[in-house]
Design a protein around this nucleic acid. Structure first.
Lengths: 367, 367
DNA sequence: AATTAATGTGAAAACGATTGCCTTATTGTT
DNA sequence: AACAATAAGGCAATCGTTTTCACATTAATT
């Protein structure tokens, strides 16, 4: 027992610090106040070259004397110089920026992996520029081009369908690309994902092993590879157990609006269903709401398995068994792979295509 | 069922362009293949100036003849020229980029608002660079500086404590800043948030109205304004109803690890508690797990209200009443405000300080 | 016819780095 | 003493734009 209560001082701590600086310039221009290499070289009676070499750790290599180097570094620290990345990028063609394109950053799956990728990128000196496609090809294309125009060094993409040409193009231009979550069969590119077929197979198997005979798959009609593989996994299990398939395929474009109604109809028309696999997280969340509204008992009446795990599922009562993707591992592989190409300065010829195993988190204790 | 397969012509479109320049270098360098203004002016027998003016819509203003303009635009479209933003940024000092700093993009509250902000920014021609502070001042400072070095035009910050000087500095340099979720009392800056005190007051009131007499607040020891205000709201209601305060203040730094144990102890030592307000979303999620593990009946034994609404709470059974922040409105206000300063080219003297009302979503039907 | 005023363009200087190639000591060799 | 080799740094071009002037036509004015 500790904590509790406490006095909360409404802190006025900082009032002193605020006033002092920038008294002379009543200028209204911004940016002009930043110190540049030229300022440094002038102040120290050296050349830009020398400063630049020292700043880039090439002092020895370029035979700059240790004293000069020390003097420069000291001065740089003193005046708090930091390089202008735009200028540097202009000449080097590198920006230390990675373009990160997801379907929707508001989706927990993407935001979590984003969080992990961001951290790793950051640790390697890279910043992230991100944007969401909402699954629209047009937006995705626009984003890729915009990123290119801004000189991002590499791309992490959750591709929409129809991006084949553009991605091929990127690779031809020697711009490192890593796809994740899904890939494009017609394009040879690095890809990190999970073994969706196995994962879904296991998920369904779990239901079957619990004695469920009429297992449905709730999915979308999108042709994204991860969805197709999950479908395959479902099919495989059904075939193995000689079960009938019940598939509800919600139109991808209207997945938000239609899910609820479509699912209700589907269940009504297929009263025999006693198990459901949701092929992705938003379907699971929306679907569980429907089940609840219709007072369907889980898992006795219908048992449920969801793809992707997250807070919502973790807290759901009764426990929902879920397929958890190894987010940390994926993030690490993605970044590592991208960094290899980035360091190399060109796209490697052999593409890396890795599918990690997913983990089935069994939650319902009661059968 | 359609698609799949297709033939993707491995386009050789660019091979011509690539060879022409830098023939000497049999370099494998990238980027050199992009067409520049200079290429255009050369090809069309015009000057860079003319091209630039036309491209920037200043053709009329600069009295470029309509025919020339048309010719240039046609050619530009034909060769698919797009400007190099780095070069442009170097001279204009603008990058059309907004730095977006949140506590953790993996947190649904932040990722959802990020999604909304991104969309609005995008519609206004701005891109987002984002990063997470994890609540650490040092990381926040580093990020702000990194963003500055990259020449972002404006900042959207969810500030940690201790950022007063840096933010003041930004404003003095005329760099637009908008804070959200919380603000820094010692700094005069734009801020968009919700009326936390009222929101928490109403949340607690809801519990009190349901007859709860021993209402606890689960919060952190952070001095962030939004947390302090929520505490005030809680205090206000208790005072009004003449109730005793039960406050569990989890150390902010160890909020993940300690919450569960601290909460269990807290409840054990205060068996009389019959209502709980969670001051923020991760506390609610973690806390509800504890309540469930301890088989505490909600709301009959302990009634619960959570701050922030999200999928997890929406799905939780029994329904958990929650304080929902008006994310869309906040996002819109944030962007609008930032755009005003951005268009203006300088920081407006009067700061905008807006607290939107939050909505209490009552969920438990049974009392 | 000469001057002025529009019109349309272009030259060149930024912006702030990076980098290939020089220049000048200084030291070492024979 | 003459010359090469090395050490320590500097010059200036370059990246791709934007933007300030200046210049060259042509049309209009007096």
């Amino acid at each position: 027992m500790k904590t509790i209560a406490l006095l909360f001082k409404l802190n006025i701590i900082f009032t002193t610090t605020i006033s002092a600086k920038h008294t002379t310039t009543n200028w209204i221009s911004m940016k002009r106040n930043r110190i540049s290499i030229k300022d440094i070289s002038k102040a120290l009676g050296l050349s830009n070259t020398t400063i630049s070499f020292i700043l880039n750790g090439k002092a020895e290599e370029m035979r700059i004397s240790a004293q000069v180097a020390a003097r420069v570094l000291a001065y740089v620290k003193e005046v708090g110089y930091t390089p202008n990345y735009l200028a540097r990028g202009l000449v080097t063609g590198k920006t230390n920026t990675i373009g990160f394109i997801v379907e929707n950053i508001g989706n927990p799956f993407f935001s979590q992996i984003a969080s992990l990728i961001e951290e790793q990128a950051y640790n390697n000196g890279y910043k992230i520029i991100y944007s969401s496609t909402n699954g629209e090809k047009a937006k995705a294309l626009e984003l890729i081009r915009m990123f290119r125009d801004r000189g991002v060094d590499g791309y992490i993409l959750c591709p929409t369908e129809g991006l084949e040409e553009e991605i091929t193009q990127l690779r031809e231009e020697n711009r490192p690309v890593v796809l994740f979550d899904r890939y494009l069969p017609a394009v040879d590119s690095h890809y990190i994902g999970i073994s969706n077929e196995d994962a879904m197979y296991n998920a369904c198997k779990h239901l079957a092993d619990k004695g469920k005979k009429h297992i449905a798959l709730i999915t979308t009609d999108s042709q994204q590879t991860q969805m197709l593989s999950r479908l395959e996994g479902y099919r495989k299990l059904l075939k193995e157990r000689n079960l009938t398939a019940y598939i509800l395929s919600v139109p991808y474009e209207e997945r938000r609006e239609r899910l609820q109604l479509d699912l209700e109809n589907f269940l009504e028309n297929n009263g025999i269903i006693d198990g459901i696999c949701f092929a992705t997280n938003y379907l699971a969340v929306g679907g569980l709401e429907v089940l609840r509204r219709n007072q369907i008992k889980i898992p006795s009446h219908i048992a449920v398995v969801a793809f992707d795990d997250n807070e919502a599922l973790r807290l759901f009562q009764p426990g929902i068994t879920a397929v958890a993707q190894p987010l940390e591992d994926m993030a690490k592989l993605i970044i590592d792979r991208l960094l290899i190409d980035l360091k190399l300065g060109k796209v490697t010829d052999k593409t890396f295509h890795k599918e990690l195993p997913a983990r089935l988190i069994v939650r319902e204790s009661t059968g």
